[in-house]
């Protein structure tokens, strides 16, 4: 499609025929960036669901926490009273710090909220309600601690705009899209090839038999939450870099949408989370581009409903058996 646009824009009358195409491709690039955020969040939903059959409704708020952590960490690194690092160095250090700290938050949540319930063997419904409440606690805890004033992430990156045959691509967009791709492939590798990934898949199938292999179930579950939350933290940071205004509720709506994306893709399947995220972003952005913006969510969700109506278990979903 890109090469096609090159052909279109080279001939002598670019204004007449090239513009709609360019506009379309421009929107595609935006959709890829937006979809990267959805995909990064949806991967966490799908991982935890795939392994534990638990919908971790606090996950969207983990994304928000990730954005805030990146704000605090980078502000600290840049502050003149602190280490006063150069921006490149601050960026390079903020990424791992955000990922590690956010996964710490996710693991803490598992430890203090979900694990005790799991130990008692209660029905999953209660764990899901607990997750919802944890999300609300994170949102409102943030509001109470930091107040309603919105924070802005410091500039960590010089913005460059590349013009590729009339299409504007910023370096940040490229970074976001590449990160999402990299994360996907890394995760896919971990789940399909590594031993801990094998154990994650095994838990998804039969939690009962895992300890009989000498494998500590809790460790596998903690690892799952670490992965999911770390990825959400990375997503939160990239989101904050792209739209540098943070507020405590930023994870709620985005989180819900990412959850829907995961379901449409086939929850429990990491390819599904990825494809679902991009699909949702694509639909949203195309609707917003060509229809009044108030139609966006109505149309986007109607289309997703249609997909689920045709395939109730999502695009990659198989009935129950092959999760993750």
């Amino acid at each position: 499609m890109l090469s096609l646009s090159g052909l279109w824009s080279l001939p002598c009358n670019p204004t007449a025929s090239a513009q709609p195409m360019e506009q379309f491709i421009q929107q595609c690039v935006n959709a890829l960036q937006w979809g990267s955020f959805y995909a990064l969040i949806a991967l966490g939903y799908t991982l935890v669901y795939g392994v534990l059959r638990l919908i971790n409704f606090a996950h969207g708020d983990i994304f928000m926490v990730g954005a805030y952590i990146s704000f605090f960490v980078s502000t600290f690194f840049l502050s003149s009273s602190g280490p006063a690092l150069s921006r490149d160095l601050a960026l390079a250090l903020t990424i791992p710090c955000t990922v590690v700290l956010t996964s710490g938050v996710g693991v803490t949540l598992e430890r203090i909220a979900y694990r005790p319930l799991r130990r008692k063997g209660v029905h999953r419904l209660y764990v899901v309600i607990t997750a919802l409440m944890c999300g609300l606690v994170l949102e409102n805890g943030n509001l109470a601690l930091l107040g309603a004033s919105r924070k802005a992430l410091p500039d960590l990156l010089d913005k460059h705009i590349y013009m590729i045959s009339g299409i504007a691509v910023t370096n940040l967009k490229l970074i976001v899209i590449c990160t999402a791709l990299l994360v996907f492939f890394a995760l896919h590798f971990i789940v399909t090839r590594s031993r801990i990934g094998m154990a994650m898949r095994a838990v998804a199938w039969d939690e009962f038999a895992l300890p009989l292999m000498g494998i500590p179930l809790d460790r596998v579950i903690v690892f799952t939450f670490m992965l999911g939350s770390g990825i959400a933290g990375l997503g939160g940071m990239l989101f904050a870099m792209s739209y540098p205004v943070l507020d405590p509720y930023m994870g709620a709506m985005t989180g819900w949408k990412a959850f829907i994306a995961a379901v449409v893709g086939g929850i429990g399947d990491i390819r599904g989370a990825f494809v679902g995220g991009f699909l949702l972003a694509f639909v949203e952005i195309m609707v917003a581009a060509f229809l009044p913006s108030t139609f966006r969510d109505l149309f986007a969700f109607s289309i997703l409903l249609l997909i689920l109506w045709k395939r109730p278990t999502g695009i990659f979903g198989m009935p129950m058996s092959t999760k993750i």
């Binding site: 095994a202 199938w205 038999a209």
Partner: peptide
Amino acid sequence: HIFGNLTVMENLHLA
């Protein structure tokens, strides 16, 4: 209680 979503080899490796 074998892990049906894993291959025979993966089941053995995991053990």
